[in-house]
């Protein structure tokens, strides 16, 4: 401390360091808010894309690229209304929710799987743990819409439990996955739902 007392330049250096740390702290603490803002802007663009005839054509020809709008997911129980993009890469999921590309397209027969952020990037699936049997999930695609009904209480599986998104031939279902617990990626929480009505032929 005496060193700081006798050297003015040292005091200035410490002041600058404290300002730098403060800026870093604001940046780090504001990161979740930034991701939410980013996701909001992306969603705005995705909504426009979802309504475009070009996307409708690409959807019908199954020529969607990773990051393209795919479907709109609505979960009235927890206030979710976001556009889901194709793909579950880290980049694609900046839109908030992404469709597992190895699973059928929404409303088709089989196990349709969608992953969504539970924190950051709009955190659309922040409260999926509150869903229960009978809750409705609506998917609106460029070529139609369908409704799923949650079939069981959400359950938690290890992060590498990929069987939850495995195909279910002849059975139209929807699986939502997100990280669990909130802010951690150690496990995944899973919501399973069955389609109400008839699936669109693949």
């Amino acid at each position: 401390m005496s060193y700081l007392r006798h050297h003015r330049w040292a005091r200035r250096g410490v002041s600058a360091l404290s300002v730098g740390l403060l800026v870093a702290a604001v940046g780090l603490l504001g990161y979740p808010f930034y991701t939410n803002l980013y996701q909001s802007r992306v969603q705005s663009n995705l909504r426009h894309q979802l309504a475009s005839p070009e996307l409708r054509q690409a959807y019908q020809h199954r020529s969607l690229r990773v990051g393209d709008s795919l479907t709109r997911i609505k979960i009235p129980k927890i206030g979710v209304d976001v556009v889901v993009v194709e793909g579950t890469s880290a980049s694609a999921l900046k839109a908030g929710a992404g469709h597992y590309p190895e699973t059928p397209l929404p409303c088709e027969s089989g196990n349709v799987a969608i992953a969504g952020h539970r924190t950051t990037y709009g955190k659309p699936f922040a409260n999926i743990d509150r869903l229960g049997p009978g809750d409705l999930i609506v998917l609106e695609t460029p070529v139609g819409a369908c409704t799923y009904e949650v079939s069981r209480d959400p359950f938690v599986v290890p992060a590498d439990e990929r069987s939850v998104v495995a195909s279910t031939p002849g059975h139209a279902s929807l699986t939502l996955t997100s990280c669990h617990p909130k802010g951690s990626a150690s496990h995944r929480i899973v919501v399973s739902a069955d389609m109400k009505g008839t699936a669109v032929s693949a």
């Binding site: 404290s18 300002v19 730098g20 740390l21 403060l22 870093a24 702290a25 604001v26 940046g27 780090l28 603490l29 504001g30 990161y31 979740p32 991701t35 579950t88 890469s89 880290a90 999921l93 992404g98 597992y100 992953a115 969504g116 952020h117 539970r118 924190t119 950051t120 699936f125 992060a159 590498d160 439990e161 990929r162 939850v164 998104v165 996955t177 997100s178 990280c179 669990h180 617990p181 909130k182 802010g183 951690s184 990626a185 995944r188």
Partner: peptide
Amino acid sequence: DLPRTGGTPWIPMAGAGALVLA
């Protein structure tokens, strides 16, 4: 693994630490 959608918990913790240190 299934896609990571839980954010990175060290970021807010690092932010808090940086704030205290500042």
